[in-house]
């Protein structure tokens, strides 16, 4: 489903290279975990996958279902099924949450040549999805993410994901700021989306989340490269011993 080949990318504004020859393959149906110390480039990778223009790809390619997506803008990538749950969801005053959800859903449908959802149908879907994630309906009356607590923002991201039904889900530190109950609810939401035609990339610092969303593969990102890949035992190993050994081994 996703194949990242020798990807090099830099910050557009000052040219600093952040991703330095990254390779990663994620198959349909797979849950891949990406771990790595702070500042190793995990969020940057997720932004680049989503098409954020603050970053420039200088070398390599990103293939999604066999096709390069480098020329697509973020909305096209989203409509093709790529979804990034942000580490820091953005507050947008003046944009009503419900209106935002409706426009997003219908624009994606339009792009794919599907009919728009009727308002009652839309509202029913939102209510169902919100109930599953134990999101207070009052929250949805507020402007997008405005005044939401950290945990509420993360849940709102998963709500969007549940509604938009993407094919490639990228979760950037969705676990940070969540207490254990919220973590379970969110994980259930993600697990509900697991299916043979869908892939999930879970970016996290902690083994804890991976107890709920059990990964098929684990990759360690360091200085813009994947320096080690393994199965879920790699995450346990990292939890116990930290990154130092793996970093040293990669440097050697």
């Amino acid at each position: 489903m996703l194949e990242i080949r020798n990807l090099h990318a830099r910050i557009a504004e000052d040219g600093t290279e952040i991703i330095r020859g990254l390779n990663l393959t994620v198959k349909a149906g797979e849950v891949a975990a990406i771990m790595g110390p702070n500042g190793s480039g995990k969020s940057t990778l997720s932004y680049i996958l989503s098409g954020r223009s603050d970053y420039e790809v200088t070398e390599g390619d990103i293939l999604y279902n066999g096709e390069s997506i480098l020329e697509l803008d973020p909305s096209e990538r989203a409509a093709k099924g790529i979804f990034l749950a942000f580490q820091y969801p953005v507050e947008i005053p003046g944009v009503a949450t419900m209106q935002f959800l409706k426009v997003a859903l219908n624009e994606q449908r339009k792009f794919r040549g599907e009919a728009e959802l009727s308002t009652p149908d839309f509202i029913r879907r939102v209510k169902e999805a919100a109930a599953k994630l134990q999101i207070n309906p009052e929250m949805l009356k507020r402007p997008l993410n405005v005044g939401f607590s950290g945990g509420e923002k993360k849940r709102a991201e998963i709500l969007q994901m549940a509604l938009l039904e993407p094919k490639l889900c990228i979760l950037d530190e969705t676990d940070s700021g969540l207490d254990i109950d919220a973590l379970k609810i969110v994980s259930d939401g993600v697990n509900a989306l697991r299916s043979p035609d869908r892939a999930v990339i879970v970016i996290t610092h902690y083994q804890r989340l991976l107890e709920y969303i059990v990964p098929d593969s684990v990759h360690v990102l360091y200085k813009g490269q994947v320096i080690k890949s393994g199965d879920k035992s790699l995450a346990l190993d990292l939890e116990a011993n930290g990154y130092a050994d793996i970093i040293d081994a990669a440097a050697a």
Binding site: I92, F100, V103
Partner: peptide
């Protein structure tokens, strides 16, 4: 803000219009 809306599948023009609207709304 523009990027966030686009990342949810809203085309740039439409996303811009939403943000202008939000500014006065």
């Amino acid at each position: 803000h523009l990027y966030y809306l686009q990342a949810r599948g809203i085309p740039e023009n439409k996303a811009r219009a939403m943000l202008v609207n939000a500014f006065v709304d």
